[in-house]
Design a protein around this nucleic acid. Structure first.
Lengths: 357, 357
DNA sequence: TTGTAAGCGTTATCAG
DNA sequence: CTGATAACGCTTACAA
């Protein structure tokens, strides 16, 4: 270990500082913990100088061991590749910063095995709490976390059997917002495109809201108005074969519509990754001018949406992350309040894609 | 969670396990550390059972305190919003996984203050090493890290005054690749668009490579061939005013070219964020059909490149991350080899944008 | 106002 | 093979 160069630069410890300052560890500890009013200004100055000289940094690990809290909070995310996740993370980091916490970010990269592993690792590092944007399945590992007494906050999705605070988009309102927009703009064929939604609460909620919004719109539609058509399309981005089949169906549907002389079909993507997949497919199949045939709208507002003029429902991602940490912090501090759920509103960003059917 | 006061579920410690198994802590520790051959199978079984029953997880912090190594490696990134970063991260995580390390990801979000803070925090948590994708400036905090004896590996950019291993793209080769492509396709006006490059080594290298490639091409050009024009355009994405001015100049240049009846101008973006900014600007100024006027090509291959057919030079991001951890691991294990530098090759992905001038 | 000593959960040393 | 016991770097009674 560090055999090589002369003077293996071992980090200074509190004892080193005490010696250097000609005092005991206790006083140094007091200084570190801001109990400066208990220290004579002379001693304080000596300690300060010693710390400077030795470039001393208190060891958080040792501190945590003794105090029982190491200020580490785990942030387990399903997929860092999703811009949504990164944005939420910014809120999380800001809040952690403000509260003196250190986020331990773990990316499951859409793999269950990773999720499990990281959850394990986190408990091993004795994080004081966990913010979880789970893959969806795998309640087990999470439940054990809870049983271990580690507070958790869920982001975007619930996990069956795990009772924890949760923060995310107001899915129902967001979908209603989108549907109202599409209908106002005169769309008569609306496809709600979503990843397999049985396991993931937010997707389930969005899909349900879509069907309800559709029903409501039909009910309140004038007799004379053209009928409103709508259906749910499931896109399993993780399964290439299933995806190919789904797209074949979609293509057939679009072709039929066109043959029937219908207006542009609207595709309402349930989130950013779906929207991207759709856009790529349509681009490949219909050419650069694909938007003449299909109007894409999405929940989430990835950077490329502006680039090709896609209407989006932007999530309050920063706020979601920030709020999650606040929830967690309360629990860590021992709050015993009933579980709460924060549903933050989305915001419609209208762009060219949906300007008219 | 953490419902009710009763039985605050303190995590089991090694002593608990020892008691439960009717043995001493030493044996449990031995079991945990895989010295199973030294244990009678009876004892081993009892320990195993006790661990199961108590759902025991060794405390990494305590372990680290004693052993002097906690398996934590810091990963400081300049900007998680940049897809490049996220991709590198995947390589980092995979390698950490393989080597039994725990990545502590910190996002400076392009703020110097954050970078400094996180660097501090990391040393406070006694990370065994750091992988740094630095903002560029701020050598100071990093240098102190090095002096503290913490090994570091640089990703994508060097830092003045910090001697550390480094891994990144082979910038020169990548730019040459791109230039050759553009020239082959008949472009005669090439703008190399890059963020302020004085402070950031990779940008500097790319810009230099651009000028050299340009000179070389001119030299080896046939007498009769039309002249090759090229210049560097600096885009400071962080400074709105400067950005606006730069774009005004760019627009004027493009208009002049067009008035002179020139072919399409090629914009060679030095990285993904620049490419995005350019695309957004051109889209806003020239309309959806902007690509008829400008051919965009970029180092980095963000998800939207395929969507609008932008030729890209893809970086071996995963390999970069993986390699960085390998370097770091060697240093952590005490390797004393001379500093090395891994320059990994980029790959050209030709798309419609540069199909012909 | 200051210092001593006893842990926090592990591992390492050294006897049985 | 097994198990006390002393650290690791820090905080916190408890004294002085």
């Amino acid at each position: 270990m560090n055999i090589g160069q002369p003077g293996a630069p071992r980090r200074a410890t509190i004892s080193d500082v005490a010696r250097e300052a000609g005092t005991g560890k206790t006083s140094v500890s007091r200084y570190l913990n801001g109990e400066t009013n208990v220290l004579s200004s002379d001693l304080r100055a000596r300690i300060e100088a010693a710390i400077q000289r030795l470039d001393y940094r208190p060891n958080q690990m040792a501190r945590g061991l003794k105090r029982g809290r190491n200020r580490l909070v785990g942030m387990l995310v399903a997929d860092l590749t999703n811009p949504y996740t990164v944005e939420v993370l910014r809120g999380v980091e800001a809040a952690c910063h403000a509260l003196g916490l250190m986020p331990l970010v773990c990316n499951a990269a859409n793999e269950l095995e990773m999720e499990r592993r990281y959850l394990q690792l986190m408990t091993t590092y004795r994080v004081e709490g966990v913010i979880v944007n789970a893959l969806g399945v795998e309640e087990e590992a999470l439940r054990r976390l809870g049983e271990g007494g580690t507070p958790a906050v869920l982001v975007d999705r619930k996990v069956d059997g795990l009772e924890a605070d949760m923060v995310g988009l107001d899915n129902t309102a967001a979908v209603q917002l989108g549907m109202r927009h599409l209908i106002e703009r005169g769309f008569e064929d609306i496809l709600f495109v979503v990843q397999p939604f049985e396991q993931v609460s937010s997707r389930r909620l969005r899909e349900m809201a879509f069907r309800h919004a559709l029903d409501d719109a039909r009910r309140s539609r004038a007799q004379a108005a053209p009928p409103l058509e709508g259906r749910t399309v499931v896109l399993d981005l993780a399964d290439a074969d299933a995806l190919a089949r789904a797209y074949a169906d979609l293509d057939a549907y679009l072709d039929a519509k066109r043959a029937a002389g219908a207006r542009r079909v609207a595709c309402f993507a349930a989130n950013g990754p779906v929207a991207l997949s759709l856009a790529l497919h349509l681009h490949a199949r219909l050419g650069a001018n694909w938007q003449a045939r299909v109007a894409l709208m999405a929940i989430d507002d990835p950077e490329w949406a502006e680039l090709i003029g896609i209407t989006a429902i932007r999530q309050p991602t920063y706020a979601i992350g920030y709020r999650a940490v606040e929830f967690l912090h309360e629990r860590i501090e021992g709050a015993n309040a009933p579980l709460s759920e924060a549903c933050l509103p989305g915001e419609l960003v209208a762009r060219a894609s949906t300007s008219a059917a």
